[in-house]
């Protein structure tokens, strides 16, 4: 965030004409998103607090894992959000490469750190769950390894998108990395079915019944919706900040040019 305020590329050039640019330009996004932010924040905090407290205090202990199963209420939502976040990153990258859309570039830049954070939470809580249950913090099975790869893809994206003096070059390079890395998503999801893993299989399934008792399912779902909302709120707020920061730079630059 410390790039030269007077850099020429700080002037946002927002082409208009196509439907995409008319309805998703950064200025319009700012006008629509800013009033929604307090509501988004309130809902995400309330749902997350309800889900986490329900899981930590009120949900029943598991027959097999006892209280250790409570780690599920933070581990699983974090894992889902880390994957959904990467999918969102890939979609932004797709719009960035094909349509050169400025909002998609800014969104990709802001999704990276938030997604990496959730992936980190998923890895740490998973390690803390693995030690007492499996007997090991970490094993190199397909599920754990592919999630670690996801974390490194996020870190690579964060670094690459900020690595160039010309921001456009960073956007293109990072978008390509994000799209290539998207092959990792189906690998994470299906790793527990394709190969023998120490990691358990899927508990929640949309096709068949979920293998979880109802008073354990509710806190899990509420915490998940809460985490998704947190992700949405954080990315929206950071995206609004980024747009305003750019606007500020552009105005300062214009003023400097008038003065010169």
């Amino acid at each position: 965030m410390t790039d030269n305020i007077l850099a020429p590329e700080a002037i946002p050039a927002y082409p208009t004409g196509s439907w995409l640019h008319r309805y998703a330009n950064p200025g319009r996004f700012l006008r629509l998103a800013q009033p929604a932010l307090p509501w988004l924040a309130a809902f995400s905090i309330i749902l997350t607090v309800i889900g986490i407290v329900w899981g930590y205090v009120f949900a029943p202990a598991d027959w097999e894992q006892g209280n250790a199963a409570r780690i599920m209420y933070v581990h699983v939502p974090a894992a889902w959000v880390s994957m959904a976040g990467y999918a969102a990153l890939a979609v932004c990258s797709f719009f960035s490469i094909v349509w050169r859309h400025p909002l998609a570039d800014l969104a990709a830049e802001e999704i990276g750190p938030v997604g990496a954070g959730f992936t980190f939470v998923c890895l740490i809580s998973g390690a803390l769950w693995g030690k007492p249950m499996w007997g090991a913090y970490w094993v190199w099975d397909a599920r754990l390894t592919s999630v670690l790869v996801l974390f490194f893809l996020y870190l690579g994206h964060i670094a690459l998108i900020r690595a160039f003096d010309n921001r456009e070059h960073g956007y293109r390079a990072a978008a390509i990395l994000a799209l290539v890395g998207a092959v990792n998503l189906p690998i994470i999801v299906f790793s527990v079915q394709w190969w023998n893993t120490l990691h358990q299989g899927n508990t929640i399934s949309f096709s068949g019944g979920s293998k979880i008792y109802v008073t354990m399912l509710y806190p899990l779902l509420i915490a998940s919706v809460g985490f998704y909302m947190c992700f949405l709120t954080l990315v929206t707020a950071r995206l609004c900040s980024a747009i305003m920061e750019r606007k500020t730079r552009a105005l300062l630059l214009a003023a400097a040019e008038r003065g010169a």
Partner: peptide
Amino acid sequence: EVLAKHGSSYMPK
């Protein structure tokens, strides 16, 4: 070394 592989079904005792 022996690692336990637990199931993916969650239910109260």
